[in-house]
């Protein structure tokens, strides 16, 4: 099985990084408010959640300098198939 086939059956995994972005692993398409897909240049992407990024919707590391803090601990989320599971 190739990696590409593998992606079709594996759920998308979203990891909330402490004090940082949402790390998204899996085949997702991010679209802007206008419905136009935002080109992603890598398989695993980090979505900004501190609001400070200069490259939305992607994380650019700004959370490290603007004091962004998240609740602790947070669940890791798997989505993309019926009955999405929540780990931990």
């Amino acid at each position: 099985m190739t990696g590409r086939d593998d992606e079709r059956v594996r759920p998308v995994r979203i990891t909330p990084c402490p004090d940082g972005p949402l790390l998204v692993r899996g085949p997702v398409e991010v679209v802007g408010a206008d419905g136009v897909p935002v080109p992603a240049r890598r398989r695993t992407v980090a979505l900004c959640r501190c609001g400070g990024t200069a490259a939305p919707p992607w994380c650019d590391g700004t959370h490290k300098v603007n004091g962004f803090r998240t609740a602790d601990p947070e669940p890791e989320v798997q989505a993309g198939r019926p009955g999405a599971t929540v780990e931990r």
Binding site: T15, C17, G20, P21, L23, R41, R42, T44, V45, A46, A55, W58, C59, D60, G61
Partner: peptide
Amino acid sequence: DEHVEADAVHEQIAGR
């Protein structure tokens, strides 16, 4: 510019 986005991902993977 590529490293701004790429390494914001990589630092999370590398750290944890």
